[in-house]
Nucleic acid binder design. Structure first.
Lengths: 140, 140
DNA sequence: TATTGTTATACTCTATAACTATA
DNA sequence: TATAGTTATAGAGTATAACAATA
């Protein structure tokens, strides 16, 4: 039996250390976290306008514009003017971008899967259950 | 019953999203993640030389040097020449730096505690158990 | 007028290469 | 010669302010 703040402290430390280790596993090591994060959004959530992408990532539009410029130069995304509202630009992931996301996710999951394989089944079940709870609580 | 790679994928997503939300909670909002991370190391692990600090954070010495410069300018750390090996410089956290770390940690824990308070006790127990498992597996 | 995207400018984080001081 | 720290330089992420095009 523990109190809320003790739980929070330990859960915070665990989440931040694990995610740090996971972030170190990246497919294209020349790609930054910001670029990969934006690419992943386009991969899993489909095309976005610049403003929508910036809002989802919690950065300003000029900042996201630069990130998208880099991704476009490297051939990972395309810009298409919106047919209806010509102020808008639809940013979409390319085949090359999809490949990078899939390879990176696979690499991260392979590392974690190796760690999980060393654990008792009951511990794996606990981690999986915890992940389900977190994903339900953190909407976004 | 799920397979290892499915577990890994879900656990990865949960850890990265939660830590992302936690990182947004910072006492001094003008302080970057890199600065806070270095400050936290000095707080929890004591003084470090520049090279040791750079290695622990996984960045180059020149990169850490800049980060330390910023922290020093803001009064959060001090540089002291090593008494024995005069090539070395011992970097230590100040009272002001300790206050920032403690306030940030407290802020992050308060945010998470509010989230936890909304959950059934069984879910909280699951999260706590998962955190224990992760902290045991990730030595760092 | 308001919105969308972009450019201009400035500061931080990152790296590699090169330099200084010390061991 | 090797190591610790630093400076020089350059590329990328971040922001705010200002601008053009469109609604």
């Amino acid at each position: 039996m523990t109190d809320l703040s003790s739980d929070a402290s330990e859960i915070r430390a665990a989440a931040m250390r694990l995610s740090r280790r996971l972030r170190q596993q990246r497919a294209v090591t020349t790609m930054s976290d910001a670029q990969f994060a934006a690419l992943a959004v386009l991969n899993y959530r489909g095309p976005h306008t610049l403003t929508a992408l910036a809002e989802r990532e919690g950065v300003t539009a000029p900042s996201m514009n630069r990130t998208v410029n880099c991704l476009e130069e490297d051939g990972y995304v395309t810009r298409e003017p919106d047919a209806v509202d010509r102020r808008k630009v639809n940013i979409a992931i390319t085949e090359g971008g999809i490949a990078v996301v899939e390879e990176t996710v696979q690499r991260r999951d392979e590392w974690l899967a190796r760690v999980l394989a060393e654990l008792p089944a009951a511990d794996r079940a606990t981690l999986r259950a915890a992940a389900d709870i977190i994903l339900e609580v953190i909407e976004r």
